[in-house]
């Protein structure tokens, strides 16, 4: 029933991209997105597309999984394209009644669409190839310097990984409670909005209670094992850069320099 909801949609397979250190992928996504905003011509986007295609190919994740992430922004994409297409002043190409499509509008709309799509797909590549736990580990390490500003980096990372870990558990629980209430004749699917919202009470109350119970148990279990926060805590699998990670950084640097140089050139 609820199995189609995917959050942190990790696609499990063996590939070069999967094996990379999460920090490489995080920085990579960061710089890729920055590069997208530097381009002034289509050559830059072409390079960006080729680079992304190469990464997707290396990751061995089927392309349809990337497109799945696009579904959520179709609406946003349409609005952006629409506004840019019709409301950009410049030399008109087609005019329909009061609406004018200008040459500048077409260019702007298509760059916007390209930029947004590449942005979403590139971040999808990261989440599809990195397990949520790895991702939080990477973030914790990257945010390390922020400790100087008294930011509880370890605690934030721990909260994130616990939250991520609990998503499937709570989904399963929801499924179970839902079934139990359906067996008692509950109806979650028909009726107007108000009726449906009311129908959620028999689902939400038990769900919250069980979430609190689980949180309590977890806190107790952590305390029983002497968890005291990040101070002086070591890792079982510390993140250490390997040869492939340095190579990936090199590849990334080359991409960044080449694409930005080409993208900012005026022909």
């Amino acid at each position: 029933m609820l199995r189609d909801i995917t959050l942190g949609q990790y696609y499990s397979t063996e590939s070069l991209i999967h094996k990379l250190d999460p920090r490489v992928k995080l920085w990579g996504t960061c710089f890729y997105i920055i590069s997208l905003f530097c381009f002034k011509n289509f050559v830059g986007y072409l390079v960006a597309m080729l680079f992304l295609a190469l990464v997707i190919r290396l990751s061995k994740v089927p392309f349809r999984f990337m497109v799945k992430g696009m579904k959520s922004i179709v609406f946003l994409l349409l609005i952006t394209v629409g506004f840019n297409l019709f409301l950009t002043p410049g030399t008109p190409v087609v005019s329909l009644w009061k609406l004018k499509i200008t040459w500048e509008g077409i260019v702007l709309a298509s760059t916007m669409a390209l930029r947004l799509s590449l942005l979403i797909i590139s971040s999808s590549v990261m989440t599809l190839t990195t397990t949520p736990n790895n991702l939080t580990d990477g973030m914790e390490k990257m945010m390390g310097p922020l400790k100087l500003f008294k930011l509880p980096v370890h605690e934030v990372a721990m909260m994130m990984s616990i939250a991520l870990r609990f998503i499937p558990i709570l989904l399963e629980e929801t499924d179970k409670i839902m079934k139990a209430q359906i067996a008692r004749g509950a109806d979650f699917e028909s009726g107007n909005l108000f009726k449906r919202a009311k129908a959620m009470v028999p689902l939400l109350v038990p769900l919250f209670i069980s979430a609190f119970r689980r949180a309590n148990d977890l806190a107790m279990a952590m305390e029983a094992r002497c968890y005291r926060g990040g101070e002086g805590r070591t890792k079982m699998k510390p993140l250490i850069y390997k040869k492939q990670d340095y190579l990936a950084y090199a590849g990334l640097l080359i991409y960044f320099v080449v694409s930005v140089a080409l993208g900012r050139m005026t022909f």
Partner: peptide
Amino acid sequence: GLVFQYPEHQLF
């Protein structure tokens, strides 16, 4: 009628 495992978790 189906009574699930740990049915007390469905009380609300």
